[in-house]
């Protein structure tokens, strides 16, 4: 088991096997989730049918934070233990996290215009999510801005570990400060402040997005592994000549 995390070849083989399954599971959840969110879910007593935006907004927000933790943890293991797999997984995860953060920001904005009366405000929650977006961009730019790719990996890993302090700020911003953004509805498991008929589509959509993330992660992992091979080959070539 331990070998899987150290030896990228093993994970690569496993990912070839997993890839179609993840795609199928994600797709099934997606169809089911879309049906739930458009036909099964009742309208909200205040928001009307605008509540349906929640079913893509909240899962992508959760994923943007989950993927960032994944990125930072992998960067940590990459830095400390020098595992190629960890570095490659972090590399592969970054664009996916960036996309989910963008989706979270845009759908939130589209919800905010009719509900709050504004596209954007600079309150603590919205600003800290925007900072998360910039951390993703910074990570990707750092990766690509060194001719020696291992150097870029090191710097961007440090950046991503620094960015982890932003996650608790995002999570607790709505509780500590007065914000326009509402506090979390599902923070208490015993009695969430969201009706069960709205909770089910939310969770199904989250599962769909989660499997979609794993599918794209594996896809990009394979690509990044090949790119790494090419890069190492090039470096050897320059050293020899």
């Amino acid at each position: 088991m331990k070998n899987i995390f150290i030896n990228p070849g093993q994970l690569n083989k496993l990912s070839e096997f997993l890839s179609p399954w993840l795609a199928i599971i994600s797709f099934i959840f997606l169809i089911f989730g879309l049906w739930l969110s458009f036909f099964y879910s009742p309208i909200d007593y205040q928001q009307g049918n605008a509540v349906r935006i929640l079913y893509i907004h909240a899962p992508s927000a959760w994923l943007s934070m989950l993927i960032y933790s994944f990125l930072a943890i992998n960067s940590f293991f990459g830095l400390v233990f020098g595992h190629v797999t960890a570095f490659t997984l972090a590399r592969a995860a970054a664009p996916i996290g960036l996309t989910f953060t963008a989706i979270c920001l845009v759908t939130g904005s589209v919800w905010g215009k009719p509900m709050w009366g504004t596209w954007w405000v600079w309150d603590a929650r919205l600003t800290s999510v925007l900072v998360l977006f910039f951390f993703y961009i910074g990570y990707i730019i750092f990766l690509k801005s060194f001719s020696d790719f291992t150097k870029g990996e090191k710097f961007s890993s440090i950046l991503s570990i620094i960015g982890i302090v932003n996650l608790p700020i995002i999570k607790f911003s709505v509780d500590y400060w007065n914000t326009l953004h509402q506090p979390a509805s599902i923070s208490k498991f015993s009695s969430p402040s969201i009706h069960i008929d709205m909770l089910i589509p939310l969770i199904v959509m989250f599962l769909s997005f989660l499997f979609l993330f794993l599918y794209i992660l594996i896809l990009r992992f394979q690509a990044e592994l090949i790119i790494r091979k090419i890069n190492i080959n090039n470096m050897k070539f320059y050293k020899d000549s």
Binding site: D44, M115, H195
Partner: peptide, 11 residues
Amino acid sequence: LAKHDENYMPP
């Protein structure tokens, strides 16, 4: 600006 609370339920 309207502030929405964290409660979601059908009418």
